[in-house]
Amino acid sequence: MAVETFVPSASVITVTPSAVRHFESKLGSSQQIIRFSTKESGCTGYAYVVDYADAPQADDEVIQVSDKLTVAVARSAIPMLRDTEIDYVKEGINGLLKFNNPNIAEACGCGESFSVKS
């Protein structure tokens, strides 16, 4: 009989150095965390939700990204966010979060919502 190791936080999400700097600057010296989840929205199904939280919820997957940044991923969102890279990019004078999500099957034209592969 073989023994397999399950590492739940492996490959849930990754956060680029640019996004880490962005989130750390927003949190400053507070003890808050960044929490990622999804909600039903838009014409294709789901939208990303990024919140500041004082603590993770009981069933969240918690990832220590850096000394100053802890992120939590809602358990219900893990199937939709698995292997997603979260990046912060500058486009002209605007800065925005980009979710490079390999699970997306379809996205709406305005970029507000997405559906995932089943």
Rank of each mutant, 00 (worst) to 15 (best):
T14W: 00
A2W: 03
M80W: 06
E61N: 14
A47K: 05
A47D: 03
E24R: 04
E85R: 09
N94K: 13
V15W: 00
F99N: 03
R21V: 03
P17I: 06
N103T: 09
L81V: 03
S30A: 08
T5Q: 10
V15G: 01
D60V: 04
N94Q: 15
I93E: 15
I13N: 00
N101E: 09
S41Q: 14
K39Y: 08
G95W: 05
L96E: 12
A2Q: 07
K68D: 07
A2D: 12
T70M: 05
S37F: 03
S41A: 15
A55N: 08
N100C: 07
G95V: 09
V116H: 03
K98W: 08
T38M: 02
A2H: 05
A58L: 13
D87T: 04
P17Q: 09
G45C: 06
A55C: 03
S115F: 02
A2R: 09
A107Q: 13
T14K: 02
D67A: 12
R82E: 11
E61P: 03
I78C: 04
D60Q: 06
V20W: 02
E85L: 10
I34F: 05
A10G: 08
P56L: 06
F36R: 01
P8G: 03
A19S: 05
T70V: 13
Q64C: 07
T38I: 14
L27N: 04
Q32W: 07
A19Q: 01
A47T: 08
R82S: 14
I34Y: 00
I34W: 00
I86S: 01
F6G: 05
N101D: 11
I63A: 09
G95F: 10
D83E: 15
F36W: 06
A10K: 15
K68G: 00
I78F: 02
D87N: 11
M1T: 14
N101F: 05
S66V: 07
S113P: 03
T44A: 12
V73F: 04
S66D: 05
M80A: 13
R35G: 03
P8S: 08
V116E: 05
A74I: 07
S66T: 11
K68R: 15
I13H: 00
D54F: 04
G109L: 10
N100K: 13
I104K: 08
F114T: 02
E91V: 15
N103Q: 15
K68F: 03
Q64K: 15
Y46E: 10
G111A: 11
S25V: 04
S18A: 15
A72Q: 00
V20Q: 07
G45Q: 06
T44W: 07
V116Q: 04
I34C: 01
P79E: 07
T38P: 05
Q31A: 12
R21K: 15
L69N: 02
H22G: 01
H22F: 15
A55S: 14
V89Q: 14
Y88K: 02
F36M: 08
P102C: 12
N100R: 11
L27T: 06
P102R: 09
M1N: 14
Q31K: 14
N100D: 13
A107T: 13
T14D: 09
V73T: 10
P102T: 10
M80F: 10
I33Q: 02
P56M: 09
L69M: 06
F6T: 08
